[in-house]
Design a protein around this nucleic acid. Structure first.
Lengths: 247, 247
DNA sequence: TCGGCGCTCGTACGGTGTTCGAGGAACCTA
DNA sequence: TAGGTTCCTCGAACACCGTACGAGCGCCGA
């Protein structure tokens, strides 16, 4: 997988999908949907072009008529699941509610398809669904009072946070046995954590005071907390700027 | 690469490194350092066990005596570069300055080794260097007035943001031809962006007003902006809580 | 009826991570 | 000094992977 093949230049989004006449057995959307099925079942490493062909009841390399490369398929897949996120219309609610909904929507999509966490770093998201989301986000932020580069900054702040926390959560999920809860895993790791944290003063002290906590649901709460702080920070900036000079 | 091999249970950090007697030709640290060299030169996809063996002037599979699996090697590599980050001592400065330094330190490490962005999702960071960083962070946040779960929330907020924005930046860097600046790439993409953004009302409007911006250095500024907002949000929360009930 | 085109897919190439086991070199013990 | 044991190296092989290529199929317009 060259993966840096065709940097810039022609991308999936500029080239029209193949197949216009006849009645082909496969289609781009069918391929993408089947790929997502496979990914949901077996994760990122479980998707190979051969397996995809098998599941499509087609030859191992048949998908290559519709898709130039595996990376390109993943790009399409990423945009497809981005389409699952519902973003509130601009003006439907205040900007805080809209941003909160967007953040939680993105997060729950990632929890539904944990493998996407590994896809964000591959290519910038330029597909139609990602664009639709950006569009709404820009609308919401502009209406809130951001302008110029601030819009890009604020929107990138929101996205970055969700993607980052999803990445870290995915790392956790990966390292625990499937079917085991986070709590049970922490329980098994406890001796190691005890041993290690005793060597680090601050961490150790914190751990001793908080070892009784229940780790399940902690990610969720932490995410909600973070979104609130983050929006507070943005709101504060808006307030300060308005007070200083209302343009 | 099973990659889910040995979920939990024994990890690199619990098992002592091999080789105690004799004078072996290789060593864990040498392998890790050479791997980083290779990664810096050719990126994540450029590192294969065979190439690593070659560069070590050793057999293709010799490294497997010191490292159980490629994933494990990557875990060691990740922790090694985490060691490059210098974190201010607790109490050396106020917590805002410390957190800012930590965020920028982590970010510049990632810019130095862009391939790490693809490693954060693999396993939770539990190596000694990552732990040292967490330790400092916990110390700083506790001194600032956070306690209990808030510490974990706030620290995860900081880390998530840096990792998320690094991931997105890596995606961008990957899609542009090597040696080309961001500005030049945007220039080449301009017709496509123009065409696309015209179909999205808010995004299009924003783009028309801001198409003249200089994209180089924008990431840097956006990052600094985000860190400020984020710390503002945390500070505000501390203030509010203190006012409500000073424990 | 006959090209030509859209589409499928078997085969093959050059990689990948990892297992296995034969072998060598250095050490401890007798 | 001899023998045995343990540590370490590495060539060969296995089961995969992404992808190029081109032969061949069936439908369509002429």
């Amino acid at each position: 997988m060259p993966s840096n093949a065709d940097p810039l230049g022609q991308s999936v989004w500029t080239r029209p999908p193949r197949s216009r006449g006849a009645q082909p057995a496969l289609s781009r959307t069918q391929i993408v949907r089947t790929a997502i099925e496979l990914l949901d079942e077996k994760g990122l490493e479980g998707l190979s072009m051969r397996r995809l062909g098998e599941r499509l009841a087609a030859g191992a390399t048949s998908a290559y008529w519709y898709v130039a490369t595996k990376d390109e398929l993943l790009e399409l897949v990423l945009d497809e699941v981005m389409g699952e996120i519902e973003v509130p219309e601009v003006g439907a609610t205040d900007w805080r509610a809209a941003a909160t909904a967007l953040a939680h929507g993105l997060r729950s999509m990632i929890l539904r398809h944990p493998w996407v966490a590994g896809l964000f770093g591959v290519r910038p998201m330029m597909g139609p669904n990602a664009m639709r989301m950006s569009d709404r986000m820009v609308g919401v932020l502009t209406a809130a009072g951001f302008s110029g580069l601030d819009v890009a900054y604020a929107s990138s702040l929101l996205m970055s946070h969700v993607i980052g926390s999803a990445t870290m959560e995915a790392a956790w999920k990966r390292s625990i046995a499937p079917g085991m809860s986070v709590g049970e895993s922490v329980e098994k790791l406890r001796p190691y954590i005890d041993e290690v944290s005793s060597r680090y003063p601050h961490y150790g002290a914190w751990w001793r005071e908080n070892r009784a906590m229940d780790p399940d649901g902690l990610q969720e709460e932490g995410f909600a907390f973070a979104v609130e702080r983050l929006l507070d920070g943005l709101q504060l900036w808006l307030d300060r700027r308005e007070k200083a000079g209302p343009a």
